[in-house]
Design a protein around this nucleic acid. Structure first.
Lengths: 201, 201
DNA sequence: TTGTTTTCTTATCTTTTGTTAACGTTTTAG
DNA sequence: CTAAAACGTTAACAAAAGATAAGAAAACAA
């Protein structure tokens, strides 16, 4: 995919948040970069500050942490979604997660420095504040649901809910990543699936 | 506490996010209301849209859902923190949670309508966008940690972490609420506590 | 292709958690 | 002050989940 197509896709997706006029878009797009991540390469790494945000034009990533000698997958992002170790990006603190490309992935990125410059540019400041607000609010809503599911639902209920809403994750991710995402072990998820099948039958 | 003291406290706390000049503050404060919640009364209720945000000047609230005939506590907010069924407020959808005063509580509130008016007021728009962004980003960071703790930690580890960071919750909340917050039953938390005591000894 | 890795299931055993109920203590409300 | 409700612990049992290992199938790479 060429960069101008990618930019066009990005701009189209941004309209959910802010609608830049031509002059603003020129200023904004000057702060954008492209990144090609080969499969299994990292967008962010644990113990390093993740100083950028990426928009996935093509591909997908998984978020994982390393604990007791194995990696635990906490989340995924797909095409037309943003990706970042958000807290690290916002606070400038080391990331706890690795963000890894699950396939060859094309991203449009901007750094924290870019964002700060835009927030301080009178021509862009207002729209960037708005952009930042709407993005953060959208992620907030997702997180709210996720936390709620851990507090009020059993692993089995969480899986059943994912079955009814999480098409993309279920289709594109191996099951042991999904198990991690649900907060259980792969073995346990396999048993839950068996239990559900037996109940249906 | 009188209202002008409350407003002063609020303004002081807001400085972490935005610093209003006098003219802006006058405009902004015109959109604020006060709410006194008696103990056990509700700031938000399930199946109703929560169309406001509250800043807790004095008191505390807990968030809970009703499931299978009992309430499950998911979160708490204390003095100088904001409270809202955030997703409901942002999206205008029915809340899933009840927000209940744990003691007589004084709040400063603004409605979604107030916020929209301010976001559309050229005199305030920029600072309100910024305010909204910074609030959302701060909550995002909290949620990120919370989700991570469910994915990567055992209930016991979550409790130990709360012991090391969650002074206020531990001191002010009954244990069965804390158990819910950690995603386990009160009986299980009691056992975990016993296990920890035996390990220390 | 061929061999290796990854993925998923299954089995066994251990640990933890959930459920229910009982009990004593503390707090609350009238 | 008194009765009722709420709270925390403990016990007993059932259910679920974790740990580990083995085996089959699928995906992957040389």
């Amino acid at each position: 995919m060429d960069t101008s197509t990618a930019l066009q896709i990005f701009r189209e997706n941004l309209k959910k948040y802010v609608d830049f006029n031509e002059a603003e878009w020129i200023l904004f797009s000057q702060h954008l970069s492209f990144a090609k991540l080969k499969k299994k390469h990292y967008f962010a790494e644990a113990d390093k500050v993740c100083n950028k945000v990426g928009f996935i034009v093509k591909g997908s990533v998984r978020y994982f942490q390393f604990k007791d000698g194995e990696d635990i997958t906490g989340y995924f992002s797909f095409e037309n979604e943003f990706t970042s170790s958000y807290k690290s990006y916002l606070m400038g603190t080391p990331s706890h997660v690795y963000i890894q490309a699950l396939e060859d992935t094309l991203l449009i990125t901007f750094t924290r420095k870019d964002m700060d410059e835009m927030l301080n540019d009178p021509m862009l400041a207002y729209k960037m504040e708005r952009f930042g607000r709407l993005i953060a609010e959208q992620y907030l809503c997702c997180y709210e649901d996720r936390v709620t599911s851990f507090v009020t639902q059993s692993p089995e209920e969480r899986y059943l809910q994912l079955l009814s809403t999480g098409r993309e994750i279920l289709q594109r991710m191996p099951q042991h990543y999904i198990a991690n995402y649900l907060g259980i072990t792969p073995v346990s998820l396999s048993r839950i699936r068996k239990r559900i099948l037996e109940t249906v039958r």
